[in-house]
Amino acid sequence: MARAHVITTVNGDPVEFLCDTEQTLLDVLRDELHLTGSKEGCASGDCGACSVIVDGRLVCACLMLGVEAQGHSIETIEGMAGGDRLHPLQTKFLEHAALQCGVCTPGFLVAAKSLLERNPDPTETEVRYWLAGNLCRCTGYDKIVRAVLDAAQEMRGG
């Protein structure tokens, strides 16, 4: 069975890979490219642990095929920190203790980044509804929401 040859961009770098046509983008990221920061919590689009940004849109990598990445630009958690500097969301998650086990954290960070790109000044309710596609079983969400609101404020300059 022939594998598909896909050319795409991941975290700003050109990337080529071979994949089976039924492999999801999440499988490709994790198993072919060894970018295991995106997690699989359900493989059905219900938990958000696999969140990535494709051409600026928040997507569940488990719901997209690897071959569909052809020609698109993909951002994952691995590309969120710039060089040796954490993204403000990452810093705020640490300061607010917005993670316990941390398995949901990459998905929340990617989803929150996507929110703040669209809406730099969200209300608590907007944060809660935007992040409703990301499940966290550990934190009860309180500190996650606080961290996102605090990061938004800092990114707005204060």
């Binding site: 994790r30 970018l35 295991t36 920061g37 995106s38 997690k39 699989e40 994952t76 958690i77 691995e78 969120m80 920190a81 954490l86 990452q90 998650f93 640490l94 300061e95 203790a97 993670l99 941390g102 398995v103 954290t105 990459p106 960070l109």
Partner: peptide, 19 residues
């Protein structure tokens, strides 16, 4: 203080069971 394993967990470095 910030937890010592924190940076690994916000950058996707931390290795879980399936990683």
């Amino acid at each position: 203080p910030v937890r010592p394993d924190g940076v690994d967990k916000v950058t996707g470095r931390a290795r879980f069971g399936a990683d």
